[in-house]
Amino acid sequence: MTQIVRLLRRRLPPPTLLLLALCSLLPLPGRAAEPAAWPTRAIRIVVPFPAGGYADNLARVIATDMSNTFGQPVLVDNRPGAGGNIGADLVAKSAPDGYTVVMGTIGTHAVNPWIYPRMPFNAATDFAPVAFVADAESVLVVNPAVPARSVQELIALARARPGDLTFASGGPGTTGHLAGELFKAVTHTFITHIPYKGNVPALTDLVAGQVSLSFATLQPALPFITAGKLIPLATLGTSRAAALPAVPTLAEAGLKNFEVRNWTGMLAPAGTPAAITQKLAQEVDKALSAPAVRQTMAAQGLSYTKMGPEAFGQFIQSESAKWAAVVKAANVKAD
């Protein structure tokens, strides 16, 4: 080797020697450079809704766990507006480096694309699914004055009095609205939709008897159920709610394959490396599998199902197709 170097020094001018020295520092063909360590700085979890909701609360649980694991700050950034589209769009247009993710929902990724005439992002192609986070369980409740104490009795009443019964929702295109439209289609009944600006005023009027029933999120409805001011007929998930173990699911009540999952999950910008989305998914599962967290979630009407990037992506596709059909049949438009 020494003889070769001496020979080169005699035959090659100094600039050529410099070029050879620089080339010796480059990686050899076929050897990929080692990926940079991740994370090396703060991670941001965008919640496209105001603080205090279940997506926000769970984002903070996950952020705390991730921060402890990664040794980096994990910040929750609330960006509400346009049914979640503003926050989701921010993440869709962020760098695909794993430092910005969003708590997407049934709204942002399975409903909004079908009810908004113009979307700022493509829900199907602008995101890399990371992990399912939670279902906010829903329940079919009636005002005590409604003479029905089972789902079948409610269906018979609605068929006998088409249009007389009314159902309240938190607004056009919300999960409560779409659940009602799906119920009408499956049972061949006509129940009048009464939209409100939020779940709280909808439940307030339901308790007061201004409307007949609602497909309500369990958490805000539970106090009224406990007090006997609302009667639960069925829950809308795949299994009975831990908070209402005596109440059957709609499937158990005779409506096979009727399932409404008011879900949220984590997504990253499209193009985020798979190694990073897998790492994020592992942290989501670790945070939400903690016994204390699961117990708190159950008490609040929230349930967790483990889904990594691939399974969550398939779930979103099926949800989008399902609600596209309901939206089209009921001609639902964004408010």
Results as ranks from 00 to 15, higher is better:
Phe190Asn: 13
Leu20Ser: 10
Ala325Leu: 10
Asp205Glu: 13
Gly71Ile: 09
Trp38Ala: 01
Arg149Cys: 08
Gly83Met: 02
Pro50Phe: 07
Pro248Val: 10
Leu267Cys: 07
Gln295Thr: 10
Ser24His: 13
Ala179Leu: 13
Thr238Lys: 12
Ala299Met: 11
Phe127Trp: 02
Val146His: 04
Val130Met: 03
Ala241Arg: 07
Gly87Val: 10
Ala329Val: 08
Pro14Lys: 11
Pro14Cys: 10
Ala268Arg: 01
Leu154Ser: 06
Ala227Trp: 07
Phe215Tyr: 04
Asp335Pro: 15
Thr204His: 07
Met307Asp: 08
Ala311Leu: 08
Ser212Leu: 10
Asn112Pro: 05
Glu283Phe: 00
Asn68Ser: 15
Ser67Leu: 02
Leu218Asp: 03
Gly173Met: 12
Ser239Pro: 11
Val247Pro: 00
Thr249Asn: 05
Gln210Gly: 10
Thr189Asp: 10
Thr226Ser: 07
Ala290His: 13
Arg10Gln: 14
Ala299Ser: 11
Leu222Gly: 01
Phe121Lys: 04
Pro291Leu: 09
Pro269Val: 03
Ser320Met: 06
Leu26Phe: 09
Val74Trp: 13
Ala243Ser: 13
Thr105Lys: 01
Ala168Asp: 00
Ala158Arg: 00
Ser239Arg: 15
Ile43Ala: 00
Phe49Tyr: 07
Asp77Arg: 07
Val102Lys: 01
Asp77Lys: 06
Asn78Thr: 09
Val139Arg: 04
Arg261Ser: 14
Phe315Asn: 09
Thr238Cys: 05
Leu25Ile: 11
Ala221Thr: 08
Pro162Ser: 06
Ala292Ile: 07
Thr305Lys: 14
Gly163Ser: 05
Arg161Thr: 14
Phe121Cys: 03
Val102Asp: 06
Glu283Lys: 05
Pro195His: 10
Ala131Ser: 13
Arg118Gly: 00
Gln295Tyr: 00
Gly104Lys: 05
Tyr116Arg: 10
Gln282Arg: 11
Asp65Ile: 01
Gly308Asn: 11
Pro248Arg: 12
Ala299Val: 03
Phe70Gly: 02
Gln3Asp: 14
Leu22Pro: 01
Asn57Met: 10
Leu244Gly: 05
Gly265Leu: 03
Tyr116Trp: 13
Ala234His: 08
Arg10Thr: 03
Gly171Ser: 04
Gln314Met: 10
